[in-house]
């Protein structure tokens, strides 16, 4: 098993090497200088592409290899981005008054923040307080003290929920109410009955029927059941439309990868 995996990986590397040498020799790929990281990158990327695609055949060593490479580097990349975007550009500069003003920055944070032209309103405390909360999160890693982490969670989730309630009602309820309560007999442009009015009526029925489907405390029987069934039909039409559109999008992405292999790397497709 283990040996087979190694053979597969070695064989793949060999085949890729041969193909790449042929490509360079036939000037389909251009190797400039003694070491060309860019062209090497193209070669490796092609190999990775094939390795990830190989999972379509079956789960195999190549795919696992690519997968672990991806996970390892993606994890590190994520940490790096957060570090440089958060710590280096925001947290550390926000603490700089500590260096210039010493304890004054802690005792009179707001005054110092204003003087140092910092965007944080509470000066260094804008960093200290959430940092303490953040450190409390780490108690999750210890079973005995895990309850401490409930406090930062409660603060975060409480505030999120508080903002969400009015904003949800505003954006999804009142806005949609406004959009649904429309003139169902006159076209807004011509003030006459028209095809668009018919469509608007159909859409109105659709909204109502779909809402009926989402009633949970009433059994869907009789007339109610019939309306909810119409609702299901509308739902299915919408899902079908969504599906059809997505097929197109996904195939385009696949075309992108095929283009990469056969145009950028093998240079067969012009």
């Amino acid at each position: 098993m283990k040996k087979n995996d190694l053979l597969l990986i070695g064989g793949f590397a060999l085949v890729m090497a041969v193909i790449n040498i042929v490509l360079v020799a036939t000037h389909r790929l251009h190797w400039v200088g003694r070491f060309d990281p860019k062209t090497l990158g193209t070669m490796v990327a092609a190999a990775i592409t094939i390795a990830v695609m190989s999972q379509l055949y079956k789960d195999n060593a190549l795919f696992k290899l690519a997968e672990h490479m991806l996970v390892g580097s993606a994890l590190a990349y994520g940490l790096m981005v957060t570090w440089y975007a958060m710590w280096v550009t925001e947290i550390i500069p926000a603490l700089s008054p500590l260096k210039t003003y010493g304890w004054q920055a802690v005792v009179h944070p707001m005054k110092i923040a204003e003087a140092a032209n910092k965007p944080q309103l509470l000066g260094v405390w804008s960093i200290f307080l959430p940092a303490v909360l953040g450190l409390m999160m780490y108690t999750r890693l210890n079973k005995k003290y895990a309850w401490i982490s409930r406090i930062p969670f409660a603060i975060m989730i409480g505030f999120g929920v508080g903002l969400a309630i009015p904003n949800e009602i505003q954006a999804n309820l009142l806005k949609q109410l406004q959009a649904t309560m429309v003139d169902l007999w006159h076209d807004p442009m011509t003030h006459q009955y028209s095809w668009n009015v018919l469509f608007a009526q159909i859409a109105f029925v659709g909204v109502m029927a779909t809402l009926v489907y989402f009633f949970f405390s009433v059994e869907h029987k009789g007339a109610f059941g019939a309306v909810s069934r119409v609702g299901v039909w509308f739902l299915m039409i919408a899902f079908g439309a969504s599906f059809g559109y997505t097929v197109q999008g996904r195939l385009s992405l696949l075309l992108g990868r095929i283009n990469y292999l056969f145009h950028d790397w093998l240079a067969i497709v012009r």
């Binding site: 608007a200 809402l211 559109y245």
Partner: peptide, 30 residues
């Protein structure tokens, strides 16, 4: 047509439902 009318209607209804549902859950959390 499918996109602009039935799809839009369903979108709207689902948004209503999601809104009420998430307000309910948010209240329970609160």
């Amino acid at each position: 047509w499918l996109l602009n009318w039935p799809n839009m209607a369903v979108k709207r209804a689902i948004l209503f439902g999601i809104c009420v549902g998430s307000v309910g859950t948010s209240l329970r959390v609160m």
